[in-house]
Design a protein around this nucleic acid. Structure first.
Lengths: 128, 128
DNA sequence: CGGCATCCTTTTGGATACTG
DNA sequence: CAGTATCCAAAAGGATGCCG
């Protein structure tokens, strides 16, 4: 990043950041961590993803050199995806994020309850 | 995460992950790292964000207990946002992500060039 | 099996105007 | 200043059908 305190839209690393800082990219890379996997196998792991989104995200990951796509010419064809060395380096930060969500879920839920109650009270006050 | 290898849509930590794994959240938290900041100050740092998106993201961050919102009753009012202790713990993983984009930009761009050329060649082959 | 193409719906984004 | 409300355009998401 050009300057960690200032994010310019046309900064190349900012643009790259925009491309990798999304949940599907992170989840795909995490899932592929356990080894090469085929298209539909990945899909089954990522509940809620559509084939369209999976295809798009895999393409972007491939283009950015984070995953490798290998076509195995059987019939019908099999396509295997695996994490590259470059993509491997991203796993650390991603896993730290996952871990955070697990470790802090309770505290977040307390915060939510408190927030929602503040809103509730606020609305109550306005109606009165 | 219920199981790091399998992401269920209704898993609470997966849902939480969906809420924090977006670029604006990450950038806001990073920008606020240097200290409390007012609405428009944050906005100026985050080139490309709209007021709508900033408001929404700040609300979500506040609801999840990651940032604190303080209204200072001057005239006109000032509103200060700051990172909570909880939000502070997320900075590590986020910064690791930023660092990765900077460190690996060159390699990613080489990968992109290679990918784009493969596509180009493929299309060439099809036209022939 | 692993896609791409199409169509349609829903969400998001941006611009503008207004308010305490 | 820090928003909310509104409206329109643009993008993303989902369903379906087809193909090598």
């Amino acid at each position: 990043m050009c300057n960690p305190q200032r994010f310019h839209v046309d900064c190349p690393s900012r643009k790259l950041f925009d491309q990798i800082a999304d949940k599907w990219s992170m989840m795909i890379l995490t899932v592929l961590d356990s080894g090469p996997m085929r298209f539909n196998a990945i899909r089954r792991q990522l509940e809620g993803i559509t084939q369209k989104a999976l295809t798009q995200t895999l393409r972007r990951l491939e283009r950015n050199g984070l995953v490798e796509r290998e076509v195995i010419a059987t019939s019908p064809v099999a396509v295997q995806y695996s994490v590259t060395e470059l993509g491997c380096q991203l796993k650390g930060p991603f896993k730290a994020l996952y871990k955070w969500t697990v470790d802090n879920l309770d505290e977040v839920e307390r915060a939510r309850a408190a927030f929602d109650q503040r809103i509730e009270e606020e609305e109550e006050r306005l109606r009165a």
